[in-house]
Design a binder for these strands. Structure first.
Length: 216
DNA sequence: TCGCGAGCTGCACTTACTTCA
DNA sequence: GATGAAGTAAGTGCAGCTCGC
């Protein structure tokens, strides 16, 4: 192949050597690699130390620029680099890393929000399940009461009405719905608790089913 | 007009180094 | 002073885009 580049001991170089020996070459061309290595050497020649921390002043200016626009056009990169006394590549790298940090923080915030939302839903679900169980037991108890009265003889109309109100009240104590409102609407159905609470699905005849998370 | 190579940039992942408790 | 954790500058590999030929 006979292609000569500066001999830096990097994985990139060993990759080129592999090419020279008939090995692999994926997407990146040898010229891309060479360009990258030359850029790196040029940069390293200006680096007295291995790694330098940016000064507070430099970071502040970079941060301010990032707040204005988190993407870096070539012209802005050059201007910033000049202003800060840095290599344009350093400015580009700083923006790259800053975007990555921002994304990480954003993911953490999103996770916290989702978790809070999930916890709230779970809490509502547990409450709804407990309400459901309580209502079921009350309905069973009141139904037994009604049947017992049926066995002992025909109920006077007034008593029967009173028992129905008892049953309705048992439910509405949990749901915050006025019995009169429901009776006046001509139905003992419908059991919407409120906008923020789970909805009790109506079967129309006082039979219940478990509320699932989908319902909530 | 299409295909191709080169150059550039962004992102994800990783490494190497610094700072601090 | 040694050490481990956290933060960060920089390296690497890959994908996508543009541009010139």
């Amino acid at each position: 192949m006979g292609f000569c580049i500066c001999p830096l001991e990097t994985p990139a170089r060993s990759k080129i050597i592999n090419v020279e020996h008939g090995g692999y070459l994926q997407e990146e061309t040898i010229f891309q690699l060479a360009g990258r290595l030359v850029r790196r050497r040029n940069y390293e020649e200006q680096l007295p130390e291995k790694k330098r921390r940016l000064t507070l002043e430099q970071v502040n200016l970079l941060e301010k620029s990032f707040q204005e626009e988190n993407k870096l056009e070539p012209e802005r990169k050059t201007q910033l680099a000049k202003k800060l006394g840095l290599q344009p590549r350093q400015v580009a790298v700083w923006f790259q890393n800053r975007r990555a940090r921002w994304k990480t923080k954003q993911l953490e915030r999103d996770y916290d929000l989702l978790k809070a939302s999930y916890d709230s839903l779970l809490s509502n679900y547990d409450t709804a399940v407990k309400q459901n169980e309580k209502l079921k037991s009350e309905v069973v108890s009141l139904t037994e009461k009604l049947e017992a009265k049926d066995v002992t003889g025909a109920l006077p109309q007034q008593n029967s009405d009173s028992l129905q109100v008892d049953i309705a009240n048992a439910c509405d104590v949990q749901m915050g719905v006025k019995v009169e409102d429901r009776l006046s609407s001509g139905s003992t159905r419908s059991a919407v608790v409120d906008e923020d609470s789970p909805q009790l699905l109506d079967s129309g005849d006082f039979s219940f089913r478990m509320i699932t998370m989908e319902d909530v």
